[in-house]
Design a protein around this nucleic acid. Structure first.
Lengths: 257, 257
DNA sequence: CAGCCCTATTATCAAATGATAAGTTGGGTG
DNA sequence: CACCCAACTTATCATTTGATAATAGGGCTG
């Protein structure tokens, strides 16, 4: 299936070091090398390919280098998106400690990944406690994002949920240098966004329109354009403290010097 | 504040070993002792007391021994419940790796807890990798529960959300021997349940009534009575695989021999 | 025992969201 | 270039849910 949503920002910064930003703690050169050495060669994964199926027992985890992925849970024959991932995320690290996963991970648009065997992770844990803690941290960050989604669905109407989702993605992408001044590229269709917001595509479209007419943001051909960040964040009641961005921002500054 | 919702099941099994069931893996006698030795003396915490405030830096985590707790996030001056905890849960273990928490933990009804200093946890991690992995697992279980709540809010009407929540709590309580044949005790008011389901108390009450009239369950004076488990689980689209109960059930069988 | 507060309940009306149907757009493909 | 298909858009009506208000019940306190 080909369509115009599935394009990826072409000028992606290839240095993985930015991506390690999710660790949120400045890593020493040595530590960066240890992690990079652990990764298997980069592989391309095409749109809609399942990285990891619900229930499978796996012996490796996936580091997302380029593109987007979603975690989905099936119920009543329908797939529902329960979380989204951006480059720099260790998409299924949960599988390392859980053994089997309760959800399915799927690529959204063309992506690039690097696998790490659990064998290597075991070794890492034993030899480098600091890095082990960092991996743990990274999975807890997922939990924090889950909590914020729950909060959002509990108390915001769909318009607020959409605004929150976009504010969150913009912020997360910016942490890994993939956010632009005025917005970001997003290979999600309105059907998928509606799913993530817990509504129907028809209603989502109403809401997209209302945000556009309010001069807040626009959604068009795989790109999100933000007109008024303050209004966006107010509509979505967005407070980024749950993303624990401090460390990563610091790291970014260091790297960009 | 006193009221009738805040009573606790008096015949609570005092052996902590059942509670360690959340680990979901059979623990050796030695390992059980290691953990028990790590815990500080049991303390009582009364209703509505904040265990851990959003943003605080802490140097200990809390093991819930008796009663219920909630994780809450404040937005717009209102508190929202984003997760619930039952005895046997390591309520704020997340704080160990995250340093500061993005949410607040509060007691619901009178509770008993035992703290563990992060110091001791560090030591445990260094000396007993298996137990360390178990702690990690326990936090990932929270993430899995979060995902299921998200799924539930995405695709179920309030009636289904309530049914799902009750099915989940019943199951989780049963894992630590606190579920009865026909239901369980729950010190939550309808206002709080409504919050957790993302609706208003008025509407929640409508739904409580509709479940009662459908012969599915009843909510009365701090007790949940289930009339028809199959219908309940169907209404809430409940599939317990996300609770990773296998190991715990096995453990329970072993202990009850 | 009376009064009070918190909780639960019910009714009524307004607003948000879901469902169905149908039309539009734009890029990919022959 | 013309067709085709997926994604998007709009309209209309049904249903769910929210908001406000008013009442009932139960346990605690003076």
């Amino acid at each position: 299936m080909k369509d115009r949503r599935r394009q990826v920002n072409p000028d992606f910064p290839n240095s993985w070091r930015f991506l390690l930003g999710r660790a949120r703690h400045a890593l020493s050169q040595d530590e960066q090398r240890i992690i990079e050495d652990m990764l298997e060669p980069v592989e391309r994964v095409s749109h809609d390919r399942v990285i990891l199926q619900d229930g499978d027992l796996v012996d490796r985890s996936t580091f997302l280098i380029e593109g987007f992925m979603a975690r989905t849970i099936k119920r009543d024959g329908r797939r529902h998106i329960v979380s989204l991932h951006v480059p720099g995320d260790f998409v299924d690290l949960h599988a390392f400690a859980l053994k089997r996963l309760d959800h399915t991970v799927v690529a959204i648009g063309p992506t690039k990944v690097a696998y790490v065997t659990h064998c290597h992770l075991e070794e890492l844990l034993a030899r480098h406690p600091h890095l082990g803690r960092m991996l743990w941290f990274s999975t807890l960050l997922d939990a924090a994002i889950h909590r914020e989604w729950i909060l959002t669905m509990e108390h915001l109407p769909i318009e607020g949920r959409l605004a929150h989702l976009m504010a969150e993605l913009w912020y997360r992408l910016s942490l890994v240098r993939l956010g632009d001044e005025d917005g970001f590229n997003l290979p999600l269709t309105q059907v998928e966004i509606a799913d993530a917001c817990g509504t129907t595509p028809i209603h989502l479209n109403r809401v997209v329109r209302s945000l556009r007419e309010a001069g807040i943001m626009e959604l068009s051909r795989g790109r999100v354009t933000i007109f008024d960040r303050a209004k966006l964040e107010r509509t979505g009641k967005f407070d980024p403290s749950y993303l624990y961005g401090e460390g990563a921002l610091k790291l970014g500054q260091e790297l960009s010097r």
